[in-house]
């Protein structure tokens, strides 16, 4: 029986993962951590411990790993915690997104019971460009553009921090570069984009996008948790379609506009409403498209996306 520590357990993906782990007979105990002050929607369960954890504080991370996690004999850490707001900047955001990964890997390496760390990364780490394929494999160039928003730079750094330790640490490290979950409540960029009364899109472009469901992301994390070996794996979603078709299925009218106008419009929308969608974060993929190739994850641990997005207006052909 294996015990698992899940950070970011109050996020929809974390919450569903905890449920999944609790229903798995191979799992002895689940230690679920979320931010201080988060509501605690996790169930009361004899095999579940819930504790608040501020990932920006390395001492707290240390004390959880070498306190309750060691006492429970945690073997696998699933790190889902990250800054939820892409507009956040500064040292605190960096600490939550990057330094937390560094701490967890450092600590896991010398931990007496942890043998495997699964880290949730994101397709946003990939560079999108004219000279690059739309279909992205794990060796695709990363987005190292210094003009990218901090959230992108931080996620790339966190991803690379994990990759740099593969094969060198005592524990196995798995990085899952996931497609975005298109589900209300996940705080995703496309959810916010499509949930507006209308969406602005680049004039003359209709890129291919790939979106996932929480259910599929949880399935991939679950498979990676119980798998063997380490590496970087793309986790695509079930739905691959043009942006306008996605908007159509979501029930959101789109208006084509020049990029500069779109940038200004969404910056104002953020200022006025606090919305999360950032044009700077999505500019390239909403021009040229990006679709994750999940062949490696399929071959390594049998992940295949099986759950289509629950499109509000349905899909004629999905399923």
């Amino acid at each position: 029986m294996m015990s698992v520590l899940v950070t970011g357990a109050t996020h929809p993906v974390g919450r569903q993962l905890v449920h999944q782990l609790l229903s798995d007979a191979r799992v002895g105990h689940v230690l679920a951590s979320g931010r201080h002050g988060d509501p605690a929607p996790l169930p009361n369960h004899a095999r579940l411990s819930h504790l608040p954890l501020d990932l920006t504080k390395s001492r707290e991370v240390h004390d959880v790993l070498f306190g309750p996690a060691r006492d429970l004999g945690v073997e696998v850490v699933v790190h889902l915690g990250r800054t939820p707001d892409p507009w956040r900047r500064g040292r605190s955001a960096h600490a939550g997104d990057v330094e937390a990964v560094r701490s967890i890997l450092d600590l896991s390496d010398r931990h007496p019971t942890i043998r495997r760390v699964v880290i949730l990364s994101h397709a946003v780490v990939y560079r999108v460009g004219l000279d690059l394929p739309i279909l992205v494999t794990e060796d695709h160039p990363l987005n190292l553009d210094p003009r990218s928003p901090q959230v992108v730079r931080d996620r790339v750094e966190a991803d690379l921090t994990a990759c740099a330790r593969m094969g060198l640490a005592d524990c196995e490290i798995v990085v899952l570069r996931c497609a975005e979950a298109l589900e209300v409540g996940t705080g995703g960029q496309l959810v916010d984009y499509l949930s507006a009364p209308l969406a602005l899109r680049p004039l003359g472009f209709d890129p291919m996008i790939n979106v996932a469901t929480v259910q599929d992301l949880v399935a991939s994390i679950d498979l990676a948790t119980f798998g063997h070996g380490e590496g970087v794996f793309n986790i695509p979603g079930y739905d691959t379609l043009p942006l306008t078709a996605a908007a159509d299925l979501w029930g959101t009218p789109t208006i084509p506009a020049p990029g500069r106008w779109i940038e200004a419009a969404y910056a104002w929308r953020h200022r006025l409403t606090g919305s999360r969608f950032s044009w700077g974060l999505n500019r390239q993929r909403l021009h040229f498209g990006l679709v994750l190739d999940g062949t490696r994850a399929r071959d390594a641990f049998g992940y295949v996306p099986r759950n289509p997005v629950a499109w509000p207006r349905g899909s004629q052909r999905a399923g």
Binding site: L135, P242, R317
Partner: peptide, 10 residues
């Protein structure tokens, strides 16, 4: 068909 009538390249 990637699921909605388009292939992955569009």
């Amino acid at each position: 068909d990637a699921g909605h009538g388009w292939d992955r390249f569009g």
